[in-house]
Amino acid sequence: MPGPVSGLLARFRGIQRALLVALVLVPVLIVTLALVPALIVLPFLSSRTSQVGALIAQLAAWTGSLLRVSRDE
């Protein structure tokens, strides 16, 4: 039977996970906002369309990692 201490520790783990996700989310948002001009201009250059796909794939990978870290174990 779990005691009051284990419930308190579980609550702190949830708070710790939320703070970690918030800290990791800030750089991902900054990079995403910095890439917006490139994502607007590069598709119109015929030689750069593959780079746009690579940028979007990398952003999707970072977002997926962030979401996996934020889930409860």
Results as ranks from 00 to 15, higher is better:
Ala54Gln: 00
Arg11Glu: 10
Leu59Tyr: 01
Leu67Met: 14
Leu66Thr: 05
Ala18Met: 06
Asp72Ser: 13
Leu20Gly: 13
Gly3Val: 04
Leu39Asn: 06
Leu20Pro: 05
Arg48Asn: 13
Phe12Thr: 11
Phe44Val: 09
Val41Leu: 14
Val28Ile: 11
Val69Tyr: 06
Gly7Phe: 06
Val69Gln: 09
Met1Trp: 05
Val26Met: 13
Leu67Ser: 14
Ile56Met: 08
Ala38Thr: 01
Leu42Met: 10
Leu33Tyr: 01
Gly7Thr: 00
Arg13Leu: 13
Gly53Phe: 00
Val5Ser: 13
Ser70Pro: 00
Val52Cys: 09
Ala60Asn: 11
Val69Ile: 12
Leu45Ala: 11
Arg68Met: 15
Ala34Asp: 00
Val41Gly: 09
Asp72Ile: 00
Leu33Trp: 02
Val5Glu: 09
Ser47Cys: 10
Leu9Pro: 02
Val31Arg: 11
Ser50Ile: 03
Gln16Ile: 10
Ser50Leu: 04
Arg17Asp: 07
Glu73Met: 13
Gly7Tyr: 07
Val24Pro: 03
Leu19Ile: 05
Leu25Ser: 14
Leu59Asn: 02
Ser46Cys: 04
Gln16Lys: 15
Ile15Glu: 07
Phe44Arg: 13
Pro43Gln: 13
Val31Glu: 07
Leu42His: 01
Arg17Thr: 02
Arg13Thr: 05
Val52Lys: 07
Gln58Ser: 14
Ser46Gly: 10
Leu45Gln: 04
Asp72Tyr: 06
Pro27Ala: 15
Phe12Met: 15
Arg17Tyr: 00
Gly14Asp: 07
Thr32Phe: 01
Pro27Trp: 04
Thr63Cys: 15
Val41Asp: 06
Val21Thr: 10
Val5Trp: 07
Val26Ala: 15
Met1Tyr: 03
Gln16Met: 14
Thr49Asp: 05
Ala10Glu: 02
Gly3Asn: 13
Leu35Phe: 04
Arg17Met: 06
Ala38Ser: 04
Gln51Pro: 00
Thr63Phe: 14
Ser65Glu: 10
Ile30Phe: 10
Pro37Asp: 10
Ile56Arg: 09
Leu42Ile: 02
Ala22Gly: 12
Ser47Gly: 14
Ala10Phe: 02
Thr63Arg: 13
Ser50Val: 01
Leu45Ile: 06
Ala18Gly: 12
Arg11Ile: 08
Val24Ser: 13
Val36Met: 09
Phe12Glu: 12
Leu67Phe: 11
Val24Asp: 06
Gly7Ala: 14
Arg13Trp: 05
Ser6Glu: 10
Val28Tyr: 00
Arg68Ser: 15
Ile30Glu: 03
Pro37Arg: 10
Arg71Pro: 03
Val21Glu: 05
Ala22Tyr: 01
Glu73Trp: 10
Arg13Met: 11
Ala38Asp: 03
Arg71Gln: 14
Gly53Ala: 14
Ser46Asn: 08
Ala54Ser: 05
Ala61Thr: 09
Val36Phe: 01
Thr32Asp: 03
Leu39Glu: 04
